[in-house]
Write a protein that binds this DNA or RNA. Structure first.
Lengths: 328, 328
DNA sequence: TTGAAAGCGCTAACAG
DNA sequence: CTGTTAGCGCTTTCAA
């Protein structure tokens, strides 16, 4: 089961040269006869030689691995991001250690120690909420850190979806559809993302219609429809929801009341969570945070930093896109 | 940014002993004066010394890292499993490389090469479908392989949820609730899980009521309710759904028809996907595949194998549990 | 009880 | 152009 791998020595003796010649031949370094290089290459190939990355890393430079800390056991935001990270890095031979922190300080500590012991070239911290900070301070680590879908201390490299621009996209779309009385229904006001989106909404729509802070649930969507459709004033003709689950609740509630979508009311969600957005009736127009792209960029950022390249710090906001379906 | 870590040499010279003494002191090997050992320990602590895992691994034994291949970008099944794996292994100092294969053969190859180069102690393969095989053959790798939520070649170590037992749980629960005419609505018949569940259902309920193969979607749930409630025979009083999304469609469709749940019909789902199961009205009784536990066991399995311990091969089916809510 | 030395697999000076 | 040598940071004989 644990047969010893072929080493550079095996290749050397098979080719009748010294190990350093093999090393040079395979790494395209130093100068040597093209023909020798080819011959050694061939031998190495035949022997299925693959250099031991551990030995290589030990020599100093890089370990070609990074750590990804997340507190998400659930996957809605994390997995697309992770696969973006992984995708961006696999081309550079870099592998990603996944660490589920469970928001537990002690566990996080253990993960970080393990990562550092393994000489990772960098760490990406990600969270289920933008404003969730790491349970322990990462800023003094000896390796670069990138915050993805999370914020770090000022000056650190952070990648976030542009909530403001995403919200604008949603509202402007509703306006382009001829909607004039647009309300905003969203999650708890202590979520930074909720506030950003609400502010963008306010900036465009003014305060004729309310911002309804509440919960990220379908139930809240139902609740709000009840409120809005029983008030004195005429109900809104456009609803911008803070996430897709709220939007789903809204749509179901509207259907229960026989209010036609998008005939009487247009609805736009946020997240483009396909299992929700594609199953509402009608299917939901919603904002996509492009999390995979965010992951990819986080991967490239940590890659650059780990190579010692400079990478200007600060928060970088990545554009969202709108996915138009039938609800608007 | 890249300050050199303190090495065993630093500790040795600070303590005025040789590096081998330090090694022994810290690893509790060899014999030496308890007092010396303590003193060295203290020095190491003060210097915040942490041994370089790469160097350690190079010496032969283990690398304390494993690879986790998955084709899931989506997260519904994977992430709970992954965090189970990670959780089980972090206590043993083992870190997990996450590799998103995208079902792409070439990409998988690259990931595996990277893993092998990094001398992983083992590989876990997982998939979104039980019967999805790895895009390339893993059975001849030089490291042990465990299949989690996926099947490998005969004789390999595989961990799967016990679909049969899970289905029995669901059906027996319906019967205990006094239901006598139970239909089964599920996904495509080319999913092995769908067939297993259907067979278990048949074994208990006979064939008075139909098994309706279709899709894993809400839409299919709606569709089926239409069928069942427009047939000549009386409609069923119990519905066992192959996943939670179907169940959600069913519940919505029944509500549209003013059929009371669980008054007239009891509904049970499968997956315990909280965002669905907790949001149906009434909330959904459903089967939980205990994926985190499955991940944990996969982690322990690969750990045992990587230590060279024997671990009997074959498919191991892990029990599901039932989560009773209001729909039954 | 401790330390010197060899070596894991590899790269990079430096000689030859 | 090629090979010898010296490590990377650590563990592990084997002498002292």
């Amino acid at each position: 089961m644990k047969k010893p791998r072929t080493t550079i020595h095996d290749v050397a003796s098979a080719a009748g040269v010294s190990i350093s010649t093999v090393s040079k031949a395979l790494n395209d370094t130093g100068r040597m006869q093209a023909e020798t290089r080819e011959r050694i290459r061939k031998v190495a190939d035949d022997l299925q030689f693959r250099p031991n990355a551990l030995a290589r890393s030990l020599l100093g430079k890089r370990s070609f691995s990074i750590g990804l800390l997340t507190n998400d056991t659930y996957g809605r935001f994390s997995l697309p991001m992770m696969s973006g990270v992984s995708e961006a890095l696999v081309d550079h031979g870099v592998s990603v250690f996944l660490c589920a922190t469970n928001d537990d300080q002690e566990l996080t500590r253990r993960h970080i120690d393990a990562l550092l012991d393994k000489q990772v070239d960098g760490i990406i911290f990600s969270a289920t909420r933008l404003d969730r900070r790491p349970p322990i301070d990462l800023s003094r680590l000896s390796v670069p850190v990138v915050y993805a879908f999370a914020e770090g201390p000022t000056g650190s490299v952070a990648l976030l979806p542009d909530d403001d621009q995403g919200a604008r996209l949603a509202v402007e779309h509703l306006i382009a559809r001829g909607r004039r009385h647009i309300a905003h229904i969203t999650g708890p006001s202590d979520y930074r993302a909720a506030r950003f989106r609400a502010e963008a909404y306010r900036r465009i729509c003014g305060d004729a219609e309310p911002v309804l802070y509440g919960y990220w649930t379908e139930e809240w969507g139902h609740e709000v429809v009840k409120q809005l459709w029983s008030r004195d004033k005429a109900p809104p003709d456009g609803l911008f929801c803070g996430n897709d689950q709220i939007a789903r609740g809204v749509i179901d509630a509207l259907r229960d009341r026989n209010i036609s979508i998008p005939g009487e009311v247009s609805v736009v969600g946020f997240d483009n969570w396909d299992v929700v957005a594609e199953q509402t009736r009608p299917a939901l127009t919603t904002i996509d945070m492009e999390l995979k792209e965010l992951g990819r960029q986080a991967g490239l950022a940590i890659l650059a930093l780990s190579k010692g390249q400079t990478f200007s710090g600060g928060v970088r906001k990545l554009p969202c896109s709108i996915v138009v379906r039938r609800s608007s």
